[in-house]
């Protein structure tokens, strides 16, 4: 698998895929996409990077341990749900607000953060699985 072309292309391919995954994540509420799909795309990106260049560079690029990312995602989703409690509505009720930034109106919501959480859990957990399996190949 470690051909020169693949090894050279992989980092760029991976970064493109990660960017695409974020795009898919953000458009998810109104167009096809969302946290699950985005997360899977990002996870595949890291898996490809790992196959091409080995696990160590991926781990360095990620900086955090993948499971820590997943844990953060779960935490984020839960907090997004708990925010509703603070407003006196049932757990996980969506709260919406509009932010005007540079003339563009952004819909911000707890649901968005919940979806971010889903994204991080999927990225973290599946990258972690893929890397763990790839790692064993090296020894």
């Amino acid at each position: 698998m470690q051909t020169v072309i693949f090894r050279t292309a992989a980092p760029y391919l991976a970064s493109l895929m990660v960017m695409f995954s974020v795009f898919v994540l953000l458009r998810g509420h109104n167009e096809p996409g969302g946290g699950f799909i985005g997360g899977l795309i990002a996870a595949s990106a890291f898996a490809i990077y790992g196959i091409a260049c080995g696990v160590t560079p991926v781990r360095r690029a990620l900086y955090f341990h993948p499971m820590a990312i997943a844990g953060f995602g779960l935490f984020l989703s839960t907090v997004a749900g708990l925010a509703s409690l603070a407003m006196g509505v049932p757990f996980l009720t969506g709260l919406w607000t509009e932010v005007h930034l540079l003339g563009v109106t952004l819909d911000l919501s707890t649901v968005l953060f919940f979806d971010f959480g889903v994204y991080f859990v999927v990225v973290g957990a599946i990258t972690s699985i893929a890397l763990a399996l790839e790692e064993r190949e090296e020894d």
């Binding site: 998810g28 509420h29 167009e31 996409g33 989703s77 757990f91 996980l92 969506g94 919406w96």
Partner: peptide, 21 residues
């Protein structure tokens, strides 16, 4: 209610958020 046009995604993250969690 949920300000989303992609109904599938809205069901996942909003209507059935607890399941997804």
């Amino acid at each position: 209610i949920a300000h989303g046009r992609n109904i599938v995604n809205v069901i996942i993250v909003d209507f059935r958020g607890l399941d997804t969690l």
